[in-house]
Design a protein around this nucleic acid. Structure first.
Lengths: 204, 204
DNA sequence: CTCGTGTCGCTAGCAGTGCTAGATTCCTTC
DNA sequence: GAAGGAATCTAGCACTGCTAGCGACACGAG
């Protein structure tokens, strides 16, 4: 019976781990959805626990604290962004740089709370040289690929950082209502024209 | 005696209003200093009240709520930034654009909490066409003046928004440790070179 | 000089926050 | 079935922003 018991024990343990992983993901998804629907201020541990139909302490058996939940949402959001950028290929005479820029800004516009968790709220996600999440590297890699065609003899990583920073600045200032919507198109044209070695590569 | 009484009453009222205005400013300054020293999380109404040596309700006789205090700090910060940009004139062969960019980034680096209140934390400051504070217009005006020399035939306001957005993106991503410090100089060179009509105006 | 009057600031409290210790319930195993 | 252990919940702490209502003070009138 010991082998049977062990076998059974393993499968039961597997089921438990699976259910636990599902609940883990449920918490992340619910937090993201609640934030998108009502903003991060509305994401309290009580409301989140109520939505996942468990009590608060269950959250703390999965995450060290609320910050860790937000961080998990942010990291998975980076994966979403990376996939979106990978799919965003230029159509017609559009440059790859423009396709990436438009996809990035659309992501920030459509999912402002998620974007906030990823790049605005301060978190202790390791962005330095050490253990930075793969999702982040993927997203940045897609930006690098989009910048590469216009790099010329410029430093590719630094140029990508400039591109990213500009997009991020536009995204956040727009979200805060600090830029004039009337300039939306002109602004992006100017940025892309300036970064494209000024050889008017991007004009249609 | 009625004229004497009225005269006295006016001066007393003046003194009271003056003291009240001083206390109003004291609250703003204390909130800003506390935020700069320990971050905005440390700025609670209790701690703030303790620092100004009054009880909490006094804060609410000056401001509608904590948000209004942060907003006052932010608006005065815009005045500081405008003054700093006005003073930042190019030295030697430096372009005015570079002088403004460096001054802006230094401001964001040296006073991160103040910068946060101004441009990161969402607030209901009216940025639209209606009653936007004068301090804000001044600061943006300084940026416009710095961009003007390189505008070429481009839309000046939109180009300034691109310049501002890029600086803002760099400032916030740097603050969050999301950019590589090794690229700091290259990044700014690339941005200024790209915005300067690509005529290498800014290369020394 | 004394007495209302009204402004001013304070004490105490509310509802809600993130988080946790201890009791309780449920399931597995013998 | 009973013992053991893991998983979950209840109840509570210290804190947040904010406010009602009380008490003390300075002021002007008689």
């Amino acid at each position: 019976m010991s082998s049977s018991a062990r076998f059974c024990g393993v499968t039961i343990q597997n089921r438990r781990e699976r259910e636990r992983a599902e609940r883990h993901q449920l918490i992340i998804d619910t937090a993201r959805d609640l934030a998108e629907a009502e903003g991060w201020d509305a994401v309290t541990t009580r409301r989140l626990a109520e939505k996942v139909e468990y009590s608060q302490p269950v959250l703390y058996s999965h995450f060290k604290g609320k910050d860790a939940i937000v961080r998990a949402v942010a990291i998975q959001g980076c994966g979403d962004l990376a996939r979106l950028l990978r799919k965003a290929r230029p159509s017609r005479g559009q440059s790859r740089l423009r396709a990436a820029a438009e996809a990035y800004l659309e992501f920030a516009r459509e999912r402002p709370a998620l974007y906030d968790a990823m790049f605005v709220q301060q978190s202790d996600i390791p962005w330095g040289t050490d253990e930075v999440p793969q999702e982040l590297l993927d997203a940045f890699g897609e930006l690098v690929a989009a910048v590469e065609p216009v790099r010329g003899d410029r430093d590719l990583e630094a140029l990508t950082e400039v591109f990213w920073s500009s997009l991020h600045g536009i995204a956040t200032l727009m979200q805060g209502g600090r830029l004039r919507p009337a300039h939306d198109k002109t602004r992006l044209d100017l940025l892309l024209g300036a970064l494209s070695l000024a050889q008017d590569e991007d004009r249609p």
